[in-house]
Design a protein around this nucleic acid. Structure first.
Lengths: 339, 339
DNA sequence: CTGAAAGCGCTAACAC
DNA sequence: GTGTTAGCGCTTTCAG
């Protein structure tokens, strides 16, 4: 492995110049730069990130903490963040806080803190105040995606507004008995979106002069089987069967579509179904949904971080204010209720 | 941020002792160890991984390269690897080679090489000989998962055997017109499993004295919509409709089940369907499949690496030889063909 | 614009 | 079992 010294020797300059030429910091004459680049190329030189980090205090590495890897939302956010980081020349080290509190503590104390990252992106995780404080003490910027972290710059879609939009779509089609499949309360611990979405749903109903019927709510776990089970309950109701279901996630909406089919109900003939996400399979299922662009959320999180880490690069001024985009995508799972 | 020196001072020992006590390398008296641990605790000391890496040459960090993040197989392998690494005290830095060759080259030249990782795990990626050579030159162990990399220790299930097993299950039930939905040839570029699985399927047929009918093969992209489309083609055939479909992935099998339903065919009444994977939703769909435990594959890859990186820890002797497990899981999507 | 030199914080011989 | 010390390879003042 060629070292900076060898490059300097070959290029006929000092190591300082090599460093400057290759990192882009500080001025170097075009001539020297050319010589350095040539030498570096010949030697296959690549900086040692450790030596560089140690000397400069910057690691060019971002820690990303997610609670799940195999769910559409999280893997999409991760993908967006990864790509954006790559463009900025940063690496991404991944921490999957799947397990218990034990594992979580371990990740925090022994991993994130070892100065290995310049900043952290927490996806749908509610960090505790001590955790946040610790990070701040270390001067590590922290940005949250999709989860409310007190005192932290968080990127999150307006769950209430999204849920309201989805519900209003159903109302505008003429539905009055609209069921909701939302998260069970346990999910509220780490990310409050279940309740926010439920509130949005209820407020749309109320504003339209409809009453909120608690029997039209079913809790599930955001996944397909959960949505299926919940929808079966809802749709199996012998009287007052809902004519529409608003599911808090596309996966639960897929489950609902399958449940309806299994009951011999047609979608959207007998029941309209709308979700939230715009999952990869939404198109396939013809699902009407509110898209929330998680990839973009990941990219945005990186933008925010880059702003803090490398100011003056002419980035967006105040991304804090930028609302995250969402968009109703009407497909074939919703229609006017049967007369 | 407390440094090792402060800890040493507070504990009344030298920095070397602190290092030894905290890293576990070399002998330290219980008394000193206790003092050091107490001091470190009080100061909230955590080693600087950069300084440590620079001095020792070990980063305790593994690079994992995957082509996709949002597919069940890959995220599962990643999850397994992440967890196993955590147990060993290693970090995982993630490289997603989603994009073009440009991005790929960049990852290779500028990221993997910056001495940030001790080893790399390549998932379903066929690295080119120069890439492999480069890694070897740097003395970085490399292990492949699911993809054949020439000259590299690779963990892969026996795709031929798995496909054969799935097909034999169908044959043993009495099916003779068995269709296969496999990967299109473009997929063969990076991971050859499509052709291996097709070969397994064909050999099962041949051994049972059945003829291989090319009209019973359809190519797809391993995902649900692709499987759906392929299955519709296969099942829509007005004469000689197959009585069973063997799909090379569970997602394509799900698509096939949905296609059958949409055609009014019952599964397994009119058509039996079997997949490969044991995807999270296989249970939900009642899909008979051959499980391939990707999480375990990720963990195994880590085991192999740890063996190379930290020999003499009493690990498994020769994991090279260890065949990866797979298992037929019979559910409700397969049955004898209708009489 | 460039070079010399002082560390960044830790580990690993090497002595004791 | 423990301390001393020489680096690991780079960045960054500080001069020039």
């Amino acid at each position: 492995m060629a070292s900076i010294e060898e490059v300097a020797k070959l290029a006929g300059v000092s190591t300082a110049t090599v460093s400057r030429a290759l990192s882009g910091r500080g001025h170097v004459s075009p001539a020297s730069r050319a010589k350095v680049e040539k030498a570096a190329g010949q030697l296959g030189y690549v900086v040692s990130s450790n030596a560089s980090s140690l000397a400069s205090g910057r690691t060019r590495n971002i820690g990303v903490v997610v609670p799940f890897l195999n769910r559409w939302f999280f893997s999409s956010v991760l993908e967006g963040a990864q790509q954006a980081l790559l463009r900025h020349g940063y690496d991404l080290t991944l921490y999957n806080l799947a397990g218990d509190g034990q594992e979580r503590a371990s990740v925090f104390e022994h991993f994130l803190m070892r100065q290995r990252v310049d900043a952290v992106i927490a996806v749908s995780l509610e960090l505790t105040p001590p955790e946040v404080t610790r990070l701040h003490e270390l001067g590590k910027p922290l940005v949250g995606v999709g989860g409310p972290i007190p005192g932290v710059h968080t990127l999150a879609i307006d769950d209430g507004a999204i849920a309201k939009l989805a519900t209003e779509h159903l109302i505008s089609l003429g539905h009055t008995r609209i069921a909701h499949i939302g998260g069970s309360s346990e999910f509220d611990l780490d990310f409050h979106l279940p309740s926010h979405r439920r509130i949005g749903y209820e407020s749309a109903l109320t504003e339209a002069g409809l009453t909120v019927d608690p029997r039209l709510f079913a809790a599930a776990d955001f996944m397909v089987p959960g949505g299926y089970t919940a929808a079966k309950q809802l749709l199996g109701n012998p009287r007052d069967r809902p004519t529409a279901i608003f599911a808090a996630s596309d996966e639960m909406a897929f489950g609902s579509i399958l449940a309806a089919r299994d009951l011999g109900l047609s979608v959207p003939g007998d029941v309209s179904i709308v979700g939230i996400d715009d999952h990869d399979l939404a198109e396939f299922f013809g699902l009407t949904t509110v898209a929330q662009f998680p990839r973009v959320q990941g990219e945005r999180a990186v933008d925010v971080l880059m702003n803090e880490l490398e100011p003056g690069r002419g980035e967006v001024p105040a991304p804090t204010a930028t609302p995250l985009p969402y968009e109703l995508r009407v497909r074939s799972s919703t229609a006017r209720p049967a007369a």
